[in-house]
Nucleic acid binder design. Sequence first.
DNA 1: GCCAACGTTGGC
DNA 2: GCCAACGTTGGC
Length: 163
Amino acid sequence: MRYWLIKSEPGEFSFDDLWAAKGRRTAWDGVRNYQARNFMRDGMRVGDLVLFYHSNADPTGVVGLCEIVREAYPDPTQFEPGHPHFDPASERSSPRWMMVDVRATERLPRVVTLAELKSSPRLKSMQVVQRGSRLSVTPVTQAQWNELLRLAEGGQKGPAKRL
DNA sequence: GCCAACGTTGGC
DNA sequence: GCCAACGTTGGC
């Protein structure tokens, strides 16, 4: 089982939007970066757990938890002329862009902000925190996952309670 | 294959 | 709104 972080601008698609979606799930379409695609295609498996991060937000940070409910399959928006994510160079016989389905499982008791991630010795190594990092899909270690939940629950010492 | 130009991301 | 960082494109 692996852990991941996915980014979204709440003005485009927020955790609330996902929470309100049918089945609290959605297809994670629109990823147009090869490294992020490879993480989705080659790394993500059903049951993997995911942090949902708001970028370009106030506050910016991790707001909720999701799980992968469907593994990578072609993103149909790449074939739709006029769609913002249309890719004229992608062919149906060999789709360039993939997406997974995610389902929201928990809303965190509070937002764990980017500032907190940066100031936490155990979280400042997270890929999303690195200077210049623009990847919208990044792996998270189990230690980072555990620490983030512990912070979200109020920062008490001790093992994270089961969310 | 190099690299300048360009577009995008995203924190601030 | 600014701009640093990064990825992609395309001329050569």
